[in-house]
Every structure is written in structure tokens, then in C-alpha cells.
Amino acid sequence: MLLLDRHGPKEDVWERAEYLCQAETNFVLAPFGAIAESPLVDSELRLGALLEPDRALDEVASFFDRLDLIVIHFPSAADGRGFSVARQLRQAGFKGVLRAFGPLISDQFPQALACGFDEVEIIGASAARQPVEHWMEALKRISFLYQRDYGATDSIPEQRLARAAHV
């Protein structure tokens, strides 16, 4: 398993559980459905929700203030729904940590960050084949994006504007 944010690898503090009542620590990561239905949602527990990419946004939005972490599942690297889910969650005002979870490839790390994710969790063979350096190098390959509102303040249009103001 590999957990990384833009600064590098990190420890996972979240305990995974199918149901909140099984939690042994104070940081529980459970499927969104289990959280939505659990009476423990009102407890002192710190909550992380595991989300499949087909969940309706409005369902999730009503839980935003209870969730410190949302983990969006990528069933495969080629399934890009999670990128749009992340954008929608950010657009709807989610301020907690967003994690992409699945067999991603390192070239998707900068895309994930641009769409509003804070970290990626890679498991199994994908993690074994792609060491940390691959993920960190991927962040440096493309310096600037054309899209204005994807994380960076130095998008190409912004830089062009700044430059035009200079001359």
C-alpha cells in the first residue's frame, strides 16, 4: 500500500471498518452507506467515508460537516469518474481531506491533485510496480495547465494575463 500527498508518502491514521460500531480507534473509515445509516454518526468518532463514484452528490453533501475524509474509489485507472466526483465535492463546499483510492497510475497523480484531491492511496500490484519516485516525478512533468480553475494559480491563461499587464 502506498499513501501519498503532494509532499510525499505518509502514514495512514484511518482504521477501516465495514460498520461504525466495529471501530476500535477514533478515526474510522467506512463505506458511505454504513455511515449514512448509523446512529453513531452523532458520536465523537472522527469519520471518513468511502465513496463509490456513482453516488449522488446531494446525498453526500448533507454529511459534509461530519466527514473529515472522503475516499473516492477508482475501480480502474481508466475509469475517470472519480475526478469529476472530486470536482463536484469541492464545488459543493467540502473542505475535508479528499483521497483517491484504487489502481491508479503515477501519471494520474497531478490530475487527481488538480481536481481537488489531497492524496492518493494505491494498493496491490500497482503500488508494488510504481515506487514513490514515480509519483513524485509525475508532479514535475507538466509545468502549467491551460485550465484556469484546477488547483494552480499559475495556469497558462493567468500567466499570459500577468505578462500582458507587464508590457
Binding site: 485507472a77 481508466a78 475509469d79 475517470g80 475526478f83 469529476s84 470536482r87 494520474q108 497531478p110 490530475q111 488538480a114 481536481c115 507538466i142 495547465l145 491551460y146 485550465q147 484546477y150 488547483g151
Partner: peptide, 9 residues
């Protein structure tokens, strides 16, 4: 081009 959200449609 290189749209971060739409490269995996």
C-alpha cells in the same frame, strides 16, 4: 488539451 478531469472519459 491535457484536461485534468477529462482525460479518462
Amino acid at each position: 488539451s491535457l484536461h485534468p478531469e477529462f482525460e479518462w472519459l
